[in-house]
Design a binder for these strands. Structure first.
Lengths: 141, 141
DNA sequence: GAAACTTACATGCACACGCATTGGATGTCA
DNA sequence: TGACATCCAATGCGTGTGCATGTAAGTTTC
């Protein structure tokens, strides 16, 4: 709407790309190396971890998880399959709607999540508090 | 370093994810639908388009392009292969360093790039000038 | 209550990506 | 000159993703 919009927009996009790639790349690497978790997998645990946390029941419907993530329905389905194979999560049928699945954290899943949370937070702090400190990761492009 | 950092950082990351995914998803969709170009492919054209633009020679070394993109060396190599098959770009050996390749825009490539540029800019403006206007795309998660 | 539609999840498939490796060209040092 | 390290680009391979589709379950309409 104002003069210089083109340049501003390009600069803003470049900055967004830089922060996004550097951060998600390091998140991926750190979570994988330290906790054997992919970023998508961690994000599912993150949603489960805060869902109904006070009731002690860490569960959510697939559809609700999907709505909170930038991941297609099929990709989420496979991500959950991986988590299930790793024993971090269990699928449970929903009594009221047998099309739907509930997803629950297992004790192992909760433990893994709690262990990974500091790693996740540390990377975010590193890259988002002082953007200048966010440099290119060694791997990932 | 200050109180509330954790919450601030999480909110900032959420916002970055939102903007990045919405924007890149719509970029991908629009460029594909209107110009038969993937986002990575367009970005290569973008770099070539502004490289030495004044000299009328739109060329650059693979390594230099790689350094400007968030793409691995192998992915760039294949992206260029696709562009080459589409006739938008040609590889040319470098006289001074025969390990390196120069990449050049063909006339068709320049034309395609010029056609796609407004689409690219429009999406950026839409999503980055007023962040609230950036809503979830229909496709892509 | 049967038929048509919609919703939730899984799966076949194609594809773009990153990592590791390879092959060829260049530079360096003895 | 010969041996070795370095650099550029291509390719084999595995994996995660999205789209399209399939299947089962719920909802609506008559």
């Amino acid at each position: 709407m104002e003069a210089g919009t083109d340049v501003d927009v390009c600069a803003k996009w470049s900055e967004t790309l830089r922060v996004y790639h550097n951060t998600s790349c390091e998140l991926e690497n750190e979570l994988q190396a330290r906790h054997d978790l992919g970023l998508s997998e961690f994000e599912v645990l993150l949603i489960l971890g805060r869902a109904c946390g006070d009731k002690g029941e860490n569960k959510a419907r697939m559809k609700d998880i999907e709505a909170e993530m930038y991941l297609s329905q099929s990709a989420l389905s496979r991500t959950v399959t991986r988590l299930e194979k790793a024993g971090l999560v269990t699928r449970a049928a929903c009594d009221f709607d047998r099309r739907a699945n509930f997803l629950m954290l297992t004790p192992a899943g909760l433990e893994r999540f709690e262990a990974a949370k500091p790693t996740h937070r540390a990377v975010l702090v590193k890259h988002l508090t002082d953007p200048a400190a966010s440099s290119r990761a060694e791997t990932c492009a």
